[in-house]
């Protein structure tokens, strides 16, 4: 640091870089997210449908994105006597 450096304001570019990196990591993930949830919903529905008869409308897939962990919530409503091929 030079003598004159003492009187300068602190550099702002590193802050800009760090803020952008955090923000864009978040935004890139959320743009792909709606697509991901739609795909997950379809595949989960297909797996369940192999074993039990379910109404496509009664399967809910929800993604919550947190700072450290994200949660995937799957809510399936299965009617009584819905097993496929059950005797």
């Amino acid at each position: 640091m030079s003598f004159f450096g003492l009187f300068r304001k602190q550099a702002s570019a590193p802050t800009a870089r760090d803020r952008l990196q955090v923000l864009l990591a978040h935004e890139r993930a959320s743009v792909g997210e709606s697509d991901l949830v739609a795909r997950l919903r379809e595949e989960i529905l297909a797996v369940i449908a192999k074993h039990v008869k379910v109404d496509g409308e009664k399967v809910k897939v929800k993604m919550d994105r947190g700072d450290q962990v994200s949660t995937l919530e799957i809510d399936v409503e299965i009617p009584l006597k819905a097993r496929v091929g059950a005797t």
């Binding site: 550099a11 702002s12 570019a13 590193p14 800009a16 870089r17 952008l20 990196q21 864009l24």
Partner: peptide, 12 residues
Amino acid sequence: GDMLKVEDVLEI
């Protein structure tokens, strides 16, 4: 240090 550097923008 008052403007993003070329490397910063390229990395991002």
